[in-house]
């Protein structure tokens, strides 16, 4: 299992640059899957499921429906896994399938959603719903690493705010400093994070923000 995990991490890093081609890790996973290794299915599921659900809920705006759509995709994947020949990478395959599932779902919805459907399917919004935002391990590793590099005071305050959801006021009381200092430290953290995450932030447009509005 650990070996598998390493292979996948390796795959994620390698993937940069060859977006739509099959990766070695994908081929390896597929090989195991065809031989009936159930742990591989579980592994793939846990890698992609959370991100796919959030991705789908950007389309259908409902967590339950999003989960159903993603589960359906995985069920089909499982059924086909013994015979499936992949021509794209797993990530591409899953995100495309979920997107199609969502569009199908919206097609059967009321007129109200027709507009939404049109926007989403025609939507030549560049990099719309860029899938890179949704693969938890990639996103999380990058951000966690960047946060860990912040200066001590700055990091402490940023974590109190983001992870423990404390307001600047609460943090100020907790640490015995002024509200203004807390805000300044958060601002400083933002600048540093931005500098550190430059590559990642330059990735996609924020098209799905538009969709949410």
């Amino acid at each position: 299992m650990i070996y598998l995990f390493l292979i996948c991490i390796f795959g994620f890093y390698k993937r940069k640059g060859l977006k739509s081609s099959v990766t070695t890790s994908d081929l390896f996973l597929f090989d195991r899957l065809k031989k009936g290794d159930d742990t591989v299915f579980d592994f793939i599921f846990k890698c992609y499921y959370p991100g796919l659900v959030v991705y789908a809920s950007q389309f259908v705006l409902d967590q339950m429906c999003a989960e159903d759509i993603v589960q359906d995709v995985f069920l089909k994947f499982w059924e086909k896994s013994k015979t499936l020949e992949i021509s794209t990478n797993l990530k591409g395959y899953f995100f495309l399938s979920v997107k199609n599932g969502c569009l199908d779902f919206l097609k059967h919805q009321k007129v109200l959603d027709k507009y939404r459907l049109q926007v989403l399917s025609e939507g030549d919004i560049p990099n719309a719903l860029d899938v890179d935002y949704y693969v938890e391990s990639e996103l999380k590793n990058k951000i966690d690493l960047a946060i860990s590099k912040l200066p001590d005071r700055c990091r402490e305050i940023f974590i109190l705010n983001r992870i423990e959801h404390k307001t600047p006021k609460e943090i100020a009381v907790m640490l015995g400093i002024s509200n203004r200092t807390v805000e300044t430290q958060i601002g400083k953290a933002l600048r540093l994070l931005r500098a550190d995450l430059e590559d990642y932030l330059s990735l996609g447009a924020l098209a799905f923000l538009l969709i949410n509005k």
Partner: peptide, 20 residues
């Protein structure tokens, strides 16, 4: 950055064990 952090929080909340 704000959006990424928000998405990450949502993603972490999804219960993949139950889904599996």
């Amino acid at each position: 950055l704000k959006l990424s952090l928000q998405l990450l929080e949502k993603i972490e909340k999804v219960d993949s064990d139950a889904g599996l």
